[in-house]
Design a protein around this nucleic acid. Structure first.
Length: 804
DNA sequence: AGCACGCCGACT
DNA sequence: GTCGGCGTGCTC
């Protein structure tokens, strides 16, 4: 009998994207388990690499000459069967390698580090150029990428002549934090005798002995050092005399150490109750249903989540709750921890690798039953899931934009089916995809139409910037907005001002009539290309020169539109020299924790005005804020993206919800050059349902999601010609597999055609039902592996969040 | 990724 | 004639 392990090796290529078989040597036969990491020899040189055991089988004999597994890297599996299964599904649906999927599901420390070492075999060996690298006797680390090409080839030559040996080492990065724990070996009776033997002035030791005599329970060394104000030397001394013992214990790095009292569930209103009942029934009946919880800002969605989780816990089940990265603030975390205390594990990008690893292990060891985290927390190794919740489900950050390009919502759906548990998608402004599914009863719609405190939604005023500019006002601030800010300053109330600046805003707009240059074929705004001074459509490739005057009103004030937070801050300060302004954007929040610091400062009313980009729109709740101003609502609106109206509506609705959350009535000013645009008009009335109908109609007309699926294929190369050619070949290969109903856009260059000296070309396929597409694309990906060597990178994105 | 094999140009 | 360039195939 032989035991064979199927191993996914850590070589991210298409050709190695399947399990490799290895013999399990007898020494590890009883220890090896599916889901463990192993070190295996791979390739001609038998270099050592990391792999994941995805299956084990026992056979009578094996004809193929297999290699042996070198060693185990884990004492227990790091992957359970569910996650292994999930990884192959993920690899298949996102067109990624399975190894890449496995590594994304696990904490970073599971990724092996490889080191190379060399040793001299022939003492006669001599080399001038390598003198510094060659070791004297033992193995010595070296890094090939730090050697000159000459040295590299010389090294290889020496190895061929068997004068040196090179080995590869797999280093495990997963280390738990170890601390010393001490335990008293003294009894109360012994104390006087020992005290007598100590000098009078040995104060520290006397304190320690006294403590030990009366405290028999084990305690961490750092804690006792702090308590008795003693040093490690004293403890070591006591250990040598046998008064205490020390041992190393594992300690979790607890990033959110909290010892608050637990909060109690709040009283629910009738709609909340209905929603809660529906979901809990599904938990009880073990149904994998998806609910869409559509609730206006302030309608108490979070309380429904918390009570849903409480129900799952009461059923001895666990829960996952996803929150967008930027909303995962300490306030948010403490709200959940306040209800469930130590049962909560938090996973998000702000944690160090070690902290993430510890939280991950707490989940794996069933010490945490509730996982709260950003996108990747959907892969938490939690078992027996009772409910999965995705808050702000419309957020684009739930889609990962590099491989594996997964959407957390889809992974959640998969896991909900696996665990037969409900999935709750919550939002004030659901994505059109989700809302459309609830229309067809694929998802069950639950509504929370009222704010829990009964307060009306803030009054939204739209300011027509075309008029404002005509009356010669300031570029960024209209008179009504300035007056409102002044008023709040006098009243000592706070204001939030949002500058909507999504990346670069390279479109052209007329400052007199608000006209934006659009593509004649696609009804999408054209993008300004400064490299060749032309306007381009990124959907169909249409091109035209930059207009000198507005085609609509013939004004010459048609120009590039865009502005920065820093400039606005200066202007604002000049207008209100006495105002205390806080600026929050990528520049001021780059450093870790600065995000929280700014918000905290604002929350403590150390500033009058918070000026920032989109990041201030999410989930903040400051009771003293009664004014919200959106300086330029159009920037997002006119991006060349079919979702731009949806994004604008969502953003404006969300930011409006920031005003007047407590007992003071809020006011919102939206400055725009397109006051009549439906996304802005409907955001004014906060009418999601009307927006949904209108936008669905447009998507239907334009053949975009949710009526059509989309798939984006991109080629990148340092020469524009090569990237373009590749896309044409791909398209030709794909065509036979496509039905006549499929719509292909492109190939076209990407909006920023050159990034890091590489040119990007893409095609977008819009389709409804293409049974052969998946297979055809997989095949293209496999064949393109050969091109990878030539520097052509092909990437495939199913349901891209943006075509840019 | 990394190593071997194999087929063409400039050297002893 | 050979050393070495890197295009191509393969890794249990």
């Amino acid at each position: 009998m032989v035991q064979i392990a199927k191993v996914i090796v850590d070589v991210p290529t298409m050709q190695t994207n399947n399990p490799y078989s290895y013999f399990v040597p007898t020494q590890i036969e009883t220890d090896i388990q599916v889901g463990m990491r192993v070190v295996v020899p791979f390739g001609n040189g038998n270099r050592k690499i990391q792999g994941f055991v995805v299956a084990l089988e026992t056979k009578a004999e094996e004809k193929n000459p297999l290699k042996n597994i070198e060693s185990l890297m884990d004492l227990e599996p790091v992957l359970n069967p569910e996650l292994i299964q999930l990884s192959s599904w993920l690899a298949d649906t996102t067109f990624a390698f399975q190894i890449t999927c496995l590594l994304t599901m696990l904490p970073n420390v599971m990724r092996a580090k490889y080191t190379k070492q060399l040793k001299i075999l022939d003492p006669e060996v001599s080399s001038e150029s390598l003198a510094k690298i060659l070791p004297e006797d033992e193995w010595k680390d070296f890094q090939p990428d730090q050697l000159t090409p000459k040295q590299q080839s010389e090294l290889l030559k020496l190895r061929k002549k068997n004068q040196i040996e090179i080995i590869y080492k797999v280093k495990n990065q997963a280390h738990s934090k170890q601390v010393f724990q001490i335990k008293s070996q003294l009894s109360e009776e012994e104390e006087p005798k020992i005290m007598a033997s100590l000098r009078k002035n040995a104060v520290k030791m006397r304190n320690l002995v006294h403590y030990l005599a009366f405290h028999q329970t084990a305690i961490k060394q750092v804690e006792i050092e702090k308590e008795l104000k003693i040093t490690a030397a004293t403890i070591k001394n006591a250990e040598e005399r046998g008064w205490l013992t020390r041992k190393k214990v594992e300690q979790y790095r607890d990033p959110y150490a909290m010892n608050k009292k637990l909060t109690l569930p709040l009283q629910l209103n009738s709609e909340q109750k209905v929603a809660l009942d529906q979901v809990t029934k599904s938990i009880k009946d073990q149904q994998s249903r998806t609910f869409l919880l559509e609730g206006v800002t302030g309608s108490g969605k979070t309380e429904v989540y918390l009570q849903t989780i409480a129900y799952a816990l009461a059923q001895n089940k666990t829960a996952i709750m996803l929150v967008p990265e930027i909303a995962l603030t300490p306030q948010m975390v403490s709200r959940v921890k306040g209800r469930f205390g130590k049962q909560v594990a938090v996973l998000h990008s702000g944690l160090s690798d070690g902290e993430k690893y510890d939280e991950w292990r707490r989940i794996k060891r069933h010490e945490a039953q509730v996982v709260v985290g950003a996108r990747s927390a959907i892969f938490a190794p939690i078992e027996n899931v009772g409910v999965i919740i995705i808050d702000e489900e419309h957020e684009t950050s739930y889609k990962q934009d590099d491989t594996p390009r997964y959407h957390a919502r889809n992974v959640a759906q998969w896991r909900s089916e696996y665990h037969n548990c409900p999935l709750v998608l919550g939002s004030a402004t659901p994505s059109l995809e989700s809302r459309a599914r609830s229309e067809r009863n694929v998802y069950q719609l639950l509504r929370l139409p009222d704010r829990i405190n009964g307060h009306p939604l803030p009054k939204v005023k739209i300011v027509d910037m075309r008029e404002e500019l005509q009356s010669g006002a300031n570029q960024n601030f209209s008179d009504p907005l300035l007056a409102a800010i002044k008023n709040r300053l006098n009243l000592k109330q706070q204001s939030i001002l949002m500058l909507n600046r999504r990346g670069y805003s390279s479109f052209i707009m007329c400052r007199d009539c608000g006209f934006v240059l659009k593509c004649p074929n696609c009804d999408i705004s054209l993008t300004l290309h400064m490299d060749n001074h032309r306007m381009k459509c990124h959907y169909c490739g249409h091109e035209e020169p930059i207009p000198k005057q507005c085609p609509n009103c013939h004004s010459e004030k048609i120009r590039y539109y865009g502005t920065g937070t820093e400039k606005v801050e200066k202007e604002l300060q000049a207008q209100f020299p006495e105002a205390r302004i806080l600026r929050m954007d990528v520049d001021t929040t780059r450093r870790k924790g600065s995000h929280e610091r700014i918000l905290q400062k604002f929350g403590q009313q150390q500033a009058d005005i918070l000026l920032g980009t989109q990041m201030i729109a999410k989930g903040l709740d400051f009771p003293n804020v009664t004014l919200v101003g959106v300086l330029n609502a159009d920037t997002a609106l006119e991006l060349p993206d079919f979702r731009s109206s949806e994004r604008t509506f969502q953003l404006l609705t969300q930011v409006s919800g920031r005003a007047g959350r407590a007992d003071k009535l809020g006011e919102v000013f939206i400055q725009t050059f397109n006051p009549d645009h439906y996304a802005i008009q409907l955001a004014k009335s906060q009418n999601y349902e009307n927006f949904f109908r209108k936008e669905m109609y447009i998507r239907h007309q334009e053949k975009y999601p949710p009526y059509y699926y989309t798939l984006q294929i991109t080629a990148a190369h340092k020469e524009e010609k090569v990237a373009a050619q590749k896309m044409y070949t791909v398209l030709n290969e794909l065509k036979p597999s496509l039905s006549p109903d499929a719509i292909v856009l492109g190939p076209t260059p990407k909006p920023i055609a050159r990034v890091k000296n590489k040119y990007y070309y893409q095609i977008v396929i819009k389709y409804k039902n293409e049974p052969q597409l998946h297979e055809a694309v997989t095949k293209i990906l496999q064949e393109s592996q050969a091109d990878y060597r030539l520097g052509i990178q092909l990437s495939i994105d199913s349901e891209p969040q943006s075509f840019m």
